[in-house]
Simulated scan of single mutants.
Amino acid sequence: MKVLAAMSGGVDSAVAAARAVDAGHEVVGVHMALSRSRAQSRTGSRGCCTVEDASDARRAADRIGIPYYVWDLSEDFHDLVVEDFLSEYAAGRTPNPCVRCNERIKFASLMDRARLLGFDAVCTGHYARVGTDGPDGGASLHRSRNDAKDQSYVLAVMGPEAAARALFPLGEFADKQAVRDEARARGLGVSTKPDSYDICFVADGDTRGFLERHLGSAPGEIVDADGTVLGEHAGTHGFTIGQRKGLGLSRPAPDGAPRYVLDVDPGARQVVVGAAELLSTRVLVARDVVSFEAVEAGRTVGAQIRAHGEAVPGRVRAVPGRGTGDLLEVELERPIRGVAPGQTLVLYDGDRVLAAATLERRA
């Protein structure tokens, strides 16, 4: 096959590209320039799309022996990921930008360009596995063998059509050190490069500061569940449901217990806080469902709401088009905390992804 290998400049994508070559594919490397300010320098494991990353990707491609190009996708990334991140927080929701990047950039914008240029598949360094046990022999998406690095959660929104055109050579690796060892054996200089983490376009890790710089100040009240004013804030976009730290409250709860954010209301400019037990829910309601296979009401599933969280056993209570409009409802076997609108819900059957959706509310 003719394969386009997305090369971030890190060890994972470099080894993935090398393995695609070993598999006999005709491979071309491409570095996605996503930042509007690519002259910036990397700070440890923070940041992305820096001069260092592009140079590291080029050196890796040269070592592997494949052509290498840089594609400027910065406008797409800004419009489809960064602006979505800002608008979601402004609306009192909690988005996952990694999910949006995979959905809209790596497996939409990049894959569309690859298809137009005649490539059969896109190869990335994600930790996940693609199978052929979907409906009618179609593509399926499975967890990686490496549970600690598994990225099936953030890839679930790609859907079966994109999965059928994706290669994830690292999905069978049991641990990250084995990937680094292989990179070292291949003579790839990125073998010891630190993993990137946090939100890639918030290079200093200060998400609240980033939001304040872009969304400005909109002061309001912090209240308890009864409406009693406990303090003030500079903007609801600085808070997310389940948050405990950084509330800025000087008055402790009557029982001395910590307070958590229970609700964010941008319209009223209010942040509601309260006891931890008020965060618990057993029913998840989601919209914008992307399915790898049909999920019927009554089916037992594993429901996961965070990239590295636990899949909690549950049962599908309602599916879109069955009297619920476009909503999916899942009832969990036990309550969980910190469910926020805007988060991604992924449903599993064992290690196989069934569907992904965007959480609307907790019931």
Score class of each variant (00 low, 15 high):
residue 63 R to Q: 15
residue 275 A to T: 14
residue 204 D to I: 13
residue 355 A to T: 10
residue 58 R to G: 04
residue 288 D to C: 00
residue 329 E to T: 15
residue 258 P to N: 11
residue 245 K to V: 07
residue 152 S to K: 02
residue 357 A to I: 12
residue 350 G to Y: 06
residue 323 G to I: 10
residue 63 R to C: 12
residue 211 L to N: 04
residue 224 D to W: 03
residue 306 R to S: 15
residue 42 R to A: 14
residue 260 Y to A: 01
residue 174 A to V: 15
residue 200 C to G: 00
residue 36 R to F: 10
residue 237 H to T: 08
residue 186 R to A: 13
residue 25 H to F: 11
residue 70 V to W: 11
residue 36 R to D: 13
residue 193 K to L: 14
residue 205 G to M: 10
residue 248 G to T: 06
residue 106 K to A: 03
residue 123 C to N: 04
residue 321 G to M: 06
residue 40 Q to G: 00
residue 94 T to L: 12
residue 74 S to L: 08
residue 328 L to I: 07
residue 106 K to P: 01
residue 243 Q to N: 08
residue 66 I to Y: 04
residue 269 R to S: 14
residue 99 V to H: 01
residue 316 V to N: 00
residue 358 T to E: 15
residue 120 D to G: 15
residue 112 D to Y: 02
residue 310 E to S: 08
residue 5 A to Y: 02
residue 208 R to L: 11
residue 276 A to I: 11
residue 328 L to F: 05
residue 212 E to K: 05
residue 180 R to M: 09
residue 285 V to E: 15
residue 152 S to C: 05
residue 236 T to E: 06
residue 197 Y to V: 10
residue 255 D to S: 02
residue 267 G to V: 15
residue 239 F to E: 02
residue 234 A to S: 13
residue 228 T to I: 13
residue 333 E to A: 11
residue 333 E to P: 00
residue 103 E to A: 08
residue 22 D to R: 12
residue 128 A to L: 07
residue 106 K to W: 02
residue 259 R to M: 08
residue 31 H to S: 09
residue 188 L to F: 09
residue 322 R to M: 11
residue 186 R to S: 05
residue 346 V to S: 04
residue 194 P to F: 04
residue 249 L to A: 06
residue 126 H to G: 07
residue 277 E to D: 15
residue 155 L to V: 10
residue 106 K to I: 02
residue 67 P to A: 03
residue 132 T to S: 12
residue 325 G to E: 12
residue 217 S to D: 10
residue 214 H to S: 05
residue 196 S to W: 01
residue 85 F to N: 03
residue 359 L to K: 03
residue 250 S to D: 14
residue 205 G to T: 13
residue 103 E to M: 03
residue 39 A to P: 00
residue 171 G to M: 07
residue 242 G to M: 00
residue 100 R to V: 07
residue 280 S to Q: 13
residue 361 R to D: 09
residue 295 V to D: 03
residue 289 V to Y: 05
residue 284 L to M: 11
residue 107 F to S: 04
residue 61 A to T: 11
residue 20 A to M: 10
residue 216 G to F: 08
residue 239 F to S: 05
residue 123 C to D: 06
residue 78 H to Q: 13
residue 150 D to R: 02
residue 4 L to D: 07
residue 192 T to F: 01
residue 140 S to F: 05
residue 312 V to D: 07
residue 286 A to I: 08
residue 259 R to N: 03
residue 216 G to R: 04
residue 154 V to D: 00
residue 179 V to M: 01
residue 298 G to T: 09
residue 191 S to W: 15
residue 88 E to M: 14
residue 48 C to D: 12
residue 59 R to C: 08
residue 269 R to C: 04
residue 25 H to K: 11
residue 351 D to S: 14
residue 247 L to G: 01
residue 134 G to Y: 04
residue 358 T to V: 15
residue 323 G to S: 07
residue 84 D to Y: 04
residue 315 R to N: 00
residue 27 V to W: 09
residue 21 V to H: 03
